[in-house]
Nucleic acid binder design. Structure first.
Length: 291
DNA sequence: AGTTTGGGAACGGTTCATGT
DNA sequence: ACATGAACCGTTCCCAAACT
């Protein structure tokens, strides 16, 4: 096979090139203007005061729809095993192209009889599922191990201190991080997304996230991708609203991409697509059921 | 000896340059 | 026009090497 030129992005960013001042679409109307316990407008005012560069971005973009996307998830709070399902999906999706992962997750749902009712995806269902059948869904041996371990961690009969929706809600951010990274297959990045989009914690800074780092680089005019320490240093002024600020970093990264100002660049869907997938995932959309 | 860092592997669907 | 197959996506784990 002859040498190939670098591939063009596999999935072009859905953000259309256009005037830098274009506003993103308005937030969906049926929201109460809060993120977790925070009034978004107040938090954005505070962020704008403390960080003028971020303030310019906020003024230009308004309240981002992604801020409110997770409100939908909060409405479904009463559904049992939601945290388990979210984390199970995160394990299946990690390391994979979103489309491929959705295909596999759909097969897994079918395998455990949850194709028509995601509520049937329970720790019991995963523990009882036939390993060969799960592997036949396209699940790697490692991921199958992770899923079973996750199911056991949520199962009272298999864990002295079983995790649950309620216990995770009651934990502070540090405790949630400790509890979840202890599970194989769940890393800091996944926990950060879980805290942001599932628990709606207001002060989460996903320093490992490529999009956040890229957004920081762009917004603050840095020449190179900032280290995690540099991101933390810059984000000091965002406390205690680092979750919202991080969402604006994704926006900054998106704008850089759409306006062609980012140098170098990663192929494929990049942080935009990934971030969108995470929003959809943690917000509880049912994309994976489309099969 | 203990800790940190870096690189490779895993994983399936999609994209697209190249050859026929 | 169609077939082929390499490259790519990104997070996590694991292991080896480097460092303290």
């Amino acid at each position: 096979m002859p040498k190939r030129k670098p591939l063009a992005p596999a999935t072009p960013s859905p953000v259309k090139p256009g005037p830098r001042t274009v506003r993103v679409e308005a937030a969906v109307p049926d929201v109460d203007g809060t993120f977790g316990d925070v009034v978004v407008a107040d938090a954005l005012r505070e962020l704008s005061t403390r960080d003028p560069k971020l303030g310019e971005l906020i003024a230009r973009c308004g309240e981002l729809p992604r801020i409110f996307a997770c409100q939908e998830a909060r409405r479904a709070k009463h559904e049992p095993n939601r945290a388990f399902r979210s984390l199970a999906r995160a394990i299946v999706f990690q390391q994979l192209n979103g489309t491929a992962a959705a295909t596999i997750f759909g097969r897994v749902l079918r395998c455990v009889g949850a194709q028509d009712d995601v509520l049937a995806l329970t720790p019991d269902a995963i523990i009882d599922a036939d390993e060969a059948a799960m592997r036949a869904c396209g699940l790697s041996q490692r991921k199958h191990e992770y899923l079973v371990a996750l199911a056991r961690a949520f199962h009272p009969a298999h864990s002295d201190f079983p995790l649950s929706d309620e216990s995770l809600e009651a934990m502070d951010d540090t405790a949630v991080m400790s509890a979840l990274v202890a599970l194989r297959g769940i890393g800091p990045w996944s926990v950060h997304m879980f805290q942001m989009f599932y628990l709606n914690r207001p002060d989460v800074l996903p320093t490992k996230d490529f999009g956040v780092r890229k957004g920081v680089m762009r917004l603050y005019g840095l020449r190179d991708m900032p280290s995690e320490a540099k991101v933390e240093e810059i984000a000091e002024r965002w406390k205690p609203h680092r979750t919202l600020a991080s969402m604006y970093m994704w926006q900054a990264a998106d704008e850089g991409k759409s306006s062609g100002q980012m140098q170098g660049g990663d192929g494929g869907k990049g942080e935009k697509g990934k971030a969108k997938e995470e929003e959809d995932h943690w917000a509880g959309t049912k994309k994976a059921k489309k099969r």
